[in-house]
Simulated assay, not measured.
Amino acid sequence: MSIDTSIPAVARLRAPEPSTDRDPAPRRRSELASFLRSRRERLDPEVLGLPTGTRRRTPGLRREEVAQLAGVGVTWYTWLEQGRQINASVQVLDAVARTLKLDQAETEHLYRLADVPAVPAVGNCRRLDPEVQQILDALRPLPAAVTNGRSDVLAWNRSYALLFPFLVNAPEDKRNSMWQVFTAPECCHPFVNRKEELGRMVANFRARYGRHVGEPAWDEFVKRLCAASPEFAELWAEHSVAEGGVRVKTFRHPALGDMNVVVTTLEVAANPGVRMMVYTPNDDATRDRIELLRQDSLESGHTYACGHSFEAPPLAELPSPVSPCPEMAGIRLALGTERGTAL
């Protein structure tokens, strides 16, 4: 009798297959397929000038009709709606969104499901509903403004305009608090504690930027501001990050003197990234000075110590650009109590 003393070959170990339950990509593509199909089926061919006929088995448009109207290949669109793993460009998704008559929320949802990092703004609408302006005006004499995540100032009340006329009077592409505080001359800068506040603003901006990495509008803004302000470029290179917190800001105003305020942030829940900034006095002297902003105008002729003029234009020349906007209909303010660090 012989005994086999050989050692059996060790079976090659194989890494376990990745669990599709943990991989969000297949689920996202499946959700994309269902979403596109539902949006296609809600469209009326007759309204779009397409023949209805009697051979339509399902409601809405056919896949080939969507592809034709969007100017994309039928096979490509079919694969997209089937949830296959294909690459979709911003331009093509934008064409599909227009064809399917998607609103702003639906279009942004489409881009997220397609895993496209650069979600473009829908149209160029920067305006808000008139109700937002009513809220801003009702807050007077407290200065208040509405901004987006990139710090573009979208709307304001009269008190805010009198406090920051250089900002609201800037061209639209530079009507941005980050841009203005980094390009303003140091001799007449609105911040008393300039160095500290600028560093904090960049750290807050970096935190918001982290949610928009790769988006052309954000990257272009950072590039422009780095070119316009070496100081911003230096702070940006430090990669400091900070979320908004309780901050007391001190502004220097030629007509009113130094003003200590706290900025309270009210998030606009229906429009992510859009927020209302309300400035409340932090001491009795500032409260008295803010009360002066209830007037329609300040006396002219004020200058900074450096000699630069500070002129608040007449009321008629400081309109807030709020008017009806279809993409932002139904806007509602979620009255949060986070205190932010905008200008």
Rank of each mutant, 00 (worst) to 15 (best):
I3P: 00
I3N: 14
T5G: 03
A9E: 09
R12G: 02
L13V: 11
R14H: 11
A15S: 14
A15L: 15
P16I: 07
P16S: 05
P16V: 07
E17Q: 10
P18I: 13
P18Q: 09
S19R: 11
R22P: 00
R22S: 06
R22V: 07
A25R: 14
R28D: 04
R28I: 07
R28H: 10
R29T: 07
R29C: 03
E31Q: 14
A33I: 02
S34Q: 13
S34L: 15
S34F: 06
S38Y: 06
R39F: 12
R39A: 13
R42P: 05
L43H: 04
L43R: 08
D44H: 14
D44P: 07
E46I: 10
E46Y: 04
E46T: 12
V47Y: 02
L48Q: 09
P51Y: 04
P51A: 03
T52V: 15
G53S: 03
T54K: 13
T58V: 09
G60S: 14
R62D: 04
E64G: 01
E64C: 08
E65G: 08
V66L: 05
V66S: 11
V66T: 08
V66E: 05
A67Q: 02
Q68D: 14
Q68F: 13
L69P: 12
G71N: 06
V72L: 08
V72N: 03
V74P: 00
T75S: 14
W76E: 04
T78V: 11
W79C: 00
W79D: 06
L80I: 12
L80M: 15
Q82W: 07
G83E: 14
I86T: 13
N87D: 15
N87F: 00
A88Q: 14
A88H: 13
A88V: 13
S89P: 04
Q91V: 08
L93T: 15
L93H: 15
D94I: 00
A95T: 03
A95F: 08
A95E: 12
A95M: 10
T99C: 09
L100C: 05
D103C: 01
A105L: 09
T107C: 06
T107G: 01
H109L: 10
